[in-house]
Computed example of a mutant assay.
Amino acid sequence: MARIIGLTGGIASGKSTISTMLHEKGYTIIDADLAARMVVEVGQPAYLAIVEEFGEDILHENDSTINREKLGGIIFNSEEKRKVLNSIVHPAVRSMMLQHKDEAIASGKNTIFMDVPLLFESDLTWMVERTLVIYVNEETQLSRLIERNHLNRQDAEARIASQFPLKDKVNLADAVIDNNGTISETKEQLEALLTEWDLQP
């Protein structure tokens, strides 16, 4: 029976570093952000529903892909429109992730990591058996985000504030990896957890 583990964290907490480590060890990672990009590709059902709802003005003229900035401008200013968009995209993302999970199980994978940034916020813990949170303290998170995204402190703080606080996610998690230290310290914690939970790729 395959084990399904939910991997989550906050912006700039180092979740993608952990994903890369797991991938290198041969584990299957199903990435919600990647699925979210795939479901809105030209011709996909979610894409068609978005165009029908928001009009062709939100498309790039040259290739008919969705202009994220234009769409973002619409939903940023309207809670109602954002809910409409989420009601189209979220079910499509969940459906694609579950499909990829079934394919991985069918191909004989023992452990599947579901990489879902909003695992707790979107009440998606039903999709997984256990949850793993990648944690950093607020100051580390802020400085990494400023450096990675070339943001000023105010913009970086606003992005972090828009998410569920990492320390609250820690309280909900089955396990936590503290990513405040060095890469090798993080790797050691991951190795220990894979052994403790007896997770094979």
Rank of each mutant, 00 (worst) to 15 (best):
D63K: 12
I5T: 04
E157Q: 14
I30N: 00
L48I: 14
K169T: 13
K81P: 02
Q44H: 14
A161W: 11
E79G: 10
G14T: 02
G9V: 04
E121G: 06
M97G: 03
H100D: 15
S13Y: 01
Y135N: 02
S87V: 06
V133E: 00
A104S: 11
G73F: 02
T131V: 08
D102W: 09
I66E: 05
R68W: 06
I5W: 04
I112Y: 04
L142S: 02
R3Q: 11
E56R: 15
G10S: 11
I66W: 05
V116P: 02
H90Y: 10
Q99A: 10
I105H: 05
E147A: 15
A156T: 03
A173C: 15
D174Y: 06
R3C: 09
K169W: 10
A36L: 07
L118C: 08
Q154Y: 12
N62P: 00
T111Y: 04
L71S: 05
A158W: 08
T17Y: 07
V116A: 00
M114Y: 02
R82T: 01
I29N: 06
E138A: 10
A12W: 01
I66D: 01
N152Q: 09
I146S: 05
I105R: 05
D31I: 07
F164K: 11
V93Y: 00
Q44W: 12
L172F: 15
L132V: 05
S78E: 09
L172N: 11
A49M: 15
K187R: 15
S162G: 09
T186S: 09
L166G: 03
I183M: 10
K101Y: 12
G72H: 01
V116L: 08
T8Y: 02
Y135R: 02
